[in-house]
Design a protein around this nucleic acid. Sequence first.
DNA 1: CTGTCTTTCCCTGTAAAAAGGGAAAATATC
DNA 2: GATATTTTCCCTTTTTACAGGGAAAGACAG
Lengths: 79, 79
Amino acid sequence: MQNRLANIILFHRKRSGLTQQELAELAGVGKNMVYELESGKQSVRLENLLKVLQVLNIELDFHSPLREAFLKEYSDAKG
Amino acid sequence: MQNRLANIILFHRKRSGLTQQELAELAGVGKNMVYELESGKQSVRLENLLKVLQVLNIELDFHSPLREAFLKEYSDAKG
DNA sequence: CTGTCTTTCCCTGTAAAAAGGGAAAATATC
DNA sequence: GATATTTTCCCTTTTTACAGGGAAAGACAG
């Protein structure tokens, strides 16, 4: 348990009553992947992180000084 | 240009006046990595994504139904 | 149109993330 | 304290992301 992301995942998994193994199966990743995520390893594939977050109903967002400008242009472009 | 993350990165890079190559050098990753990020590839390593986001001054955040509960417990635990 | 810069997308070798098995350590349940 | 469950952390093999080089395609300036 080292970084914020690891904590977020651990917290949500515990609240959902899942073991690492169960979460791994639901996300379609290996059990070791979940363990590594929760121990703060940052060399995991983004793909696999996203699968795990999806199972736990966690959405990623960003913020930056350009956030508003981006959202305007992005929604304009996408309709 | 496929997903939201790719768009965010492209937008911020353009606004900062950097080429893919320059961003890659600043982030300490290969030029192909930046290209892949911007073309929506999700198999990149989280580590490398974070390096790129840091150069562009983009912070990741999350939200979920348990967000408030997590923040409370997390700040309590960390002081 | 011509030359410069940038992006897209090949290629190759190397490093390492992946899954899955297994077993000791830790934690929880009785 | 014994037993069951879960987590931590080994191992091996397979897969693949990575850097860096290179070159065609695209964008942009003079």
